[in-house]
């Protein structure tokens, strides 16, 4: 197990290096000149360009620039300063990360709740009315784009019914003093509810199918029959014998999908104007703000890798066969 963990960590580090390098190269090779961006685009004065280029080391070879970036990142945990407005990327992320985290984790909870309840239920009653309804839900969830879903939700629940706010974020710990913005846990929840569902829908749909298939397969296993032969009631069989085995593959998938899900969060944040990482990323790309974009990517990568590590440990914990191997 210890070796398993070490192996996983080494992998994570390698992946980290590769991913940061690739993003670095993409932007470096890209058509846009960051120096020009900082000096006001087309009307940039040569003096400014020169200054900026030297300041950021933009004229050095690729590997030197990467090394500077890497060194700053690892030794000083500093993601640099925005090319667009010079603000600290660290601070930008510190502000944006809680927003995205609220969205992703809250959404994941909803997505797992929908997936588990619908998936298990339709596995137990295949071809029942609910199972068929769930299939329709799955089809919609998979084929609809989150932006579209978001707009529909906004219109129906926000505009027509007036149940929820249409956009914006409310800080969980209360709004900054004097900002006049809503704040506090309740407002947070109230503002997040639509984004959560929008975000969760696609994955819930995918997971309903997976949970359903896994539970049905596990129900066919010989050890489930053994449990029945012992005289165990169905509920006990489901909880103690079926679910844990059926959820093993789901846990692995969850680890892999959280990265994809973070990508999906970009759309949701845009639709609901949540000041999260996704929005920063979009703005950054539009403004050729390489430092911010790189910062967001690095941060997201670390988050995903960490999350995957947690999932791996969790997996080993629930599957004794891995634990002992």
């Amino acid at each position: 197990m210890f070796r398993y963990l070490i192996r996983r960590i080494l992998w994570a580090i390698l992946l980290f290096i590769i991913i940061t390098f690739v993003t670095f190269v993409i932007f470096f090779m890209g058509p846009n000149d960051p120096a020009r961006a900082q000096c006001g685009g087309d009307q940039a004065r040569p003096a400014c360009l020169k200054l900026v280029t030297e300041h950021y080391g933009l004229n050095k070879p690729l590997y030197v620039q990467y090394w500077r970036f890497f060194d700053r990142l690892v030794v000083h945990q500093n993601l640099g300063y925005s090319y667009a407005n010079g603000s600290s990327v660290n601070q930008t992320i510190a502000k944006a990360a809680p927003v995205t985290a609220s969205l992703v984790f809250g959404g994941a909870v909803i997505w797992m709740m929908i997936a588990l309840s619908l998936g298990v239920y339709s596995a137990l009653r295949p071809r029942s009315l609910l199972d068929r309804t769930a299939m329709v839900f799955v089809l919609i969830g998979i084929s609809a784009h989150p932006v579209w879903i978001g707009l529909i939700f906004e219109y129906v629940f926000g505009v027509k019914l007036g149940w929820t706010p249409i956009a914006n974020y409310a800080n969980f710990f209360g709004a900054p003093a004097g900002s006049g913005l809503p704040g506090g846990p309740w407002q947070w929840f109230y503002h997040m509810i639509l984004p959560w569902f929008t975000f969760a829908l696609l994955f819930a749909a995918l997971y309903v199918r997976m949970v359903r298939a896994n539970v049905m397969e596990t129900l066919n296993e010989d050890f489930v029959r053994t449990a029945r032969a012992k005289g165990a009631p169905e509920r006990r069989i489901l909880v103690s014998h079926v679910l844990r085995n059926a959820l093993l593959p789901v846990v692995t998938m969850l680890g892999m999908d959280i990265g994809v899900a973070l990508g999906g969060a970009v759309f949701t944040e845009t639709v609901y104007q949540l000041p999260g990482l996704g929005q920063n990323l979009v703005v950054g790309i539009q403004a050729n703000d390489f430092a911010t974009v790189q910062g967001v990517v690095v941060f997201a990568t670390v988050a995903i890798l960490l999350f995957n590590l947690i999932v791996d440990v969790l997996y080993a914990w629930i599957d004794p066969r891995i634990r002992l191997a």
Partner: peptide
């Protein structure tokens, strides 16, 4: 009535 199953390899729950 109790029953012993044919397939011992798969008749026990692997996670318990």
């Amino acid at each position: 009535i109790s029953m012993i199953f044919q397939d011992p390899m798969t008749s026990l729950n692997p996670v318990h």
